[in-house]
């Protein structure tokens, strides 16, 4: 089951996952929390920018784009 744990930027488009932890610190952590990325929040990867980064996710009913640098600090569990 350990294979199902990954960072959010690695989540494939169209896949759903659940937030398990944040590895960001300080202001960045605060921002991610404010987006609703707390433990247990479901997320889904929706769109990828034509240049490959950022990626847009469905988070709490809104579509939010995150740069891979930020998304890599959100640890999720793949729901497959």
């Amino acid at each position: 089951m350990e294979n199902n744990i990954l960072s959010l930027d690695k989540l494939l488009i169209g896949k759903k996952a659940i937030v398990r932890a944040l590895v960001a610190e300080g202001l960045e952590r605060r921002r991610l929390l404010d987006l609703g990325l707390v433990q247990g929040t479901p997320v889904e990867a929706l769109h990828v920018s034509p240049t490959g980064d950022p990626i847009a996710y469905s988070i709490m009913g809104a579509v939010i784009a995150l740069r891979s640098n930020d998304a890599s600090k959100v640890i999720v569990q793949n729901l497959s």
Partner: peptide, 10 residues
């Protein structure tokens, strides 16, 4: 360095 940010696609 670039700071973190979130862009909403309404």
């Amino acid at each position: 360095l670039p700071s973190s940010f979130a862009l909403e696609l309404p």
